[in-house]
Design a protein around this nucleic acid. Sequence first.
DNA 1: CACCAAATAAAACACTTGTTTGAAACATAC
DNA 2: GTATGTTTCAAACAAGTGTTTTATTTGGTG
Lengths: 209, 209
Amino acid sequence: MSSHDTTQTKILDAAEFLFAERGFAETSLRTITGRAKVNLASVNYHFGSKKSLIQAVFDRFLQDFTQQLSVRLEQLEQEPANELKAETLLAALIDPLLSLNTKRPNAVSIFMRLLGRAYAETQGHLRRYVTERYGHVLVRFTLLFQKGYPELTNDQIFWRLHYMLGSLIFTLAGSDALRQISEADFNRSLEVKDVIEEMVPFLAAGMKA
Amino acid sequence: MSSHDTTQTKILDAAEFLFAERGFAETSLRTITGRAKVNLASVNYHFGSKKSLIQAVFDRFLQDFTQQLSVRLEQLEQEPANELKAETLLAALIDPLLSLNTKRPNAVSIFMRLLGRAYAETQGHLRRYVTERYGHVLVRFTLLFQKGYPELTNDQIFWRLHYMLGSLIFTLAGSDALRQISEADFNRSLEVKDVIEEMVPFLAAGMKA
DNA sequence: CACCAAATAAAACACTTGTTTGAAACATAC
DNA sequence: GTATGTTTCAAACAAGTGTTTTATTTGGTG
């Protein structure tokens, strides 16, 4: 049996869609297994618990994403400081992100909505899990910005990175709905790629303020 | 009995805190009435349902906020276009926001976390309710930006406004946790006001890109 | 004081939730 | 082909949910 249409993959596919659509608490295991067309008990059999299933959904995205991001960061870490401009650094973040869409349709939007929800879970286990497991790439990313913008203090960098993350996650998480509004109002079609490219000059200008 | 410590107010206070802290679905009526020290049935008696309670929590914030914002917008709508710069327009949004903190401590952070959760509820009733009821102020706000930045296309304005909202909500919603990190790393104390003031140049520069 | 509507209280209701159980079906190796 | 370990399935479980019901208490009015 190929790695698609295994029970585990069917569960993950259904779960990530529904979690992004409705949220974690609002999505029951019965809804997930119903959509995945598998037995209810198979979630606990294969993943142990709902909590672990949520983490598994994130792992599948983050392993893929951080691996690609890490390659880009290695290249950039050997560049001189004057090459580390916001546009370049953002590209290192955005390219791996967009490549998710080549494997599964709408993956970027789903991933961003999941991140938004994980971020909202201020006190929950999920935020801790994600930062503990994938926080080191964010640190490397921060260091590159510090190197590229020595005229900014470290906490200016810290905060501006969060401004950028906010714009990215917020916009892309709602991009499906927003794209529909925009397309209706302004009568042109937009892809996720277009939305992001429109955003880069905005963020880069802010970084240079 | 003063308008504080009525049963309704005690419920609203407990609910808004817990909703912001844990989320809507993750907060049970028993937790709310337990914290508020009132009887379980009083929520349904005074508000009708949990759904209506959630809307009431938002109404209390939004009525206060949009009323102050509306006054500022009226003033700005009489200004000439060359006075409508990003810093000015952002101030019209931020001042009413900060004034929430004068009435209840941490109100800004709670309000922003609630907004973040409402925004995440992409398909839910809440987003529809908020936009239908308070969407017109956002429209007025958009029109002012279009007037102040005639060199930008309408959909550039549309998207950049969302970038700004993303930064604002994302940063302020997590500002409690982020402030702690920042204060520990850089050894200086930060107020919500400081976080926002640090943000304005970033956003304004992006607007002029 | 008696009366009545409004508010509070305790208990029960119907329902959904995540998880566990034990048997059946399946696959793999000897 | 039988035995063994893995996976699927239907059913049940205990716990927690929002809501309703039924009494009881409260506070003001005649």
